[in-house]
Design a protein around this nucleic acid. Structure first.
Lengths: 231, 231
DNA sequence: CCAAAAGTGTTCAGCTTACACCCATGA
DNA sequence: TCATGGGTGTAAGCTGAACACTTTTGG
């Protein structure tokens, strides 16, 4: 094999994952307590180094799987961080990804193995390196995306109620919505399929369950339809 | 120095720049004809390899300066590309950046030196590797950003007319606007400062010149003001 | 029977959109 | 004098925002 670029420097490349979950009340963040240097014992995002035989996307999926046991979850590249001294150990370029997971599906044993813990999005410890910056950017991205694309559903179970969905949007946008207007808006998109079943855990009356119809959404999108939640 | 991460693989890291300009009529893209292998003689984005002593942002600024002679221009990270075989020469991770430049300010000699040429945004040659994908993503980003932030001004000279601004938005969004509504909307933001001077190149009557007031915009932003162009 | 959450319609204000004519001037 | 692009106002429709009461049922 001919090496065209042999004169140039090579770098360590990492991926870091900002993992969001929703417990029905609050938006949460999954963090690990590092048990290796540098910054051993401090809180951090889950990360890992890129390997020769994998793409950045695959590396992020691998890291996410390693911690949660989950596959096929919403995972999107956020931003790449390349400041010279961002990692005090050695120079590392890091591609940050954020994931939206259904919080009741993660693997409890793996979380213990990696000293991982869920934190409230507005009450979590200081993180190592530039990880706080990454989390802030991920939150901004989540807000923007959730406004114009139906990604909120990634954080909810397959079947959910309108009040649950509203609570999710309220915690993402840190803002309360009028329930009549919210319901009108969301149902107006015509991408929710209603079940006859009710969810009765959070009220005596019970709330009807719905499901996001991805196929219908895809069809609507092709016709220039737009999903826009007013914040 | 202790090396914590010595067991991991290192990679070549590059930056590629999607450079946009506006000639008063059309949105344009600055491309170079590669005079080095692989893919010698083919059209490509301007790029370069990351050096030990510079951040990703600095590398992108260096590459942009090398080709255009311009500094302090609008330059934003777009996305990082890490597929294994994206560069047939050798494995390279590339961070793509996009730049908005004032088209009459670039350095003609440098463009000649690098075999660079401006192309219309909807009529440019096939590019090497994944550069077409990068350009598409940059275009989408530009559209989104221009809708919610006053970055269009980066593509215009310091003093510009309302019809020029409208033409710019029309070429970015590939859509015509009603001139009365456009003017109303833009002037309604109250961030344009009007001069008594007129620009008389494009009409006999002449059009008043304006300037984007960055300070005023910054002040408005602090108070929750939002710049939103309806498309 | 009562507390707690689910569910439901209407009105008003503001914004977006559509639309047509006069003005200034160089050639 | 005329062709060319610059500049201006108003009315209709739509969308977002505000707002209060009834229903259901477990405890």
């Amino acid at each position: 094999m001919v090496l065209y670029y042999s004169e140039y420097n090579k770098f360590l490349v990492a991926v870091d994952c900002i993992i969001f979950g929703f417990d029905g009340q609050e938006l949460k963040l999954l963090l690990i307590k590092r048990n290796f240097p540098p910054a051993k014992g401090e809180w951090s995002l889950m990360g890992g180094f890129l390997k020769k035989d994998e793409s950045l996307d695959n590396a992020a999926a691998r890291v996410l799987f390693k911690l949660t046991g989950l596959q096929k979850v919403y995972l999107e590249q956020l931003y790449s961080y390349g400041e010279i001294d961002r990692d005090p150990g050695e120079r590392v370029i890091s591609a940050a990804y954020y994931a939206l997971i259904k919080i009741d599906e993660y693997d409890e044993k793996l979380l213990k193995k990696y000293n991982a813990k869920w934190f409230l999005i507005n009450d979590f410890p200081n993180l190592i390196f530039d990880h706080n910056i990454m989390v802030n950017k991920a939150l901004k991205r989540l807000k923007r995306k959730a406004q114009s694309q139906p990604i909120g559903f990634e954080l909810l179970p397959e079947k959910f109620t309108i009040p649950q969905l509203q609570k999710l949007y309220e915690t993402i946008f840190q803002k309360e919505f009028d329930k009549r207007n919210f319901r009108k808006k969301i149902l107006g998109f015509q991408v929710l399929q209603k079940f006859d079943e009710k969810e009765k855990k959070s009220s005596k009356k019970g709330a009807y369950l719905y499901r996001f119809d991805q196929d219908k959404y895809n069809r609507l999108i092709e016709n220039g339809y737009s999903f826009e939640v007013n914040v």
